[in-house]
Amino acid sequence: MTRDEIEKAIIHIFGNQFEIENPGMDDDLREVHEFDSIDAIELLREIEILLGTQLTREEKKAAMDIRTITHIVDYVTELDRKTERPKDRIMN
């Protein structure tokens, strides 16, 4: 997935799953959108579905300090690069 594709997917998840429409890329999600620890765990599940794989505990822990959409996109892009999935798995 390109970074643009990941960004679009994350924005879609925020609108669809968390009812947060058009968030600023650098909004502090907790401060501006009341995005809490429960939402963070739910987001990780959505990312697993997006990537078509299960995240390790270490990968999940690494996500706990993320505060903005930009950081989320960075995080998912890095995961996607590391896992090097075949194209047909990524999009299922």
């Binding site: 429960i38 765990i41 739910e42 599940r45 697993e48 299960q54």
Partner: peptide, 10 residues
């Protein structure tokens, strides 16, 4: 078994 992780946080 792959569905086990779908038990949500909430």
């Amino acid at each position: 078994n792959t569905k086990l992780h779908n038990v949500g946080a909430v």
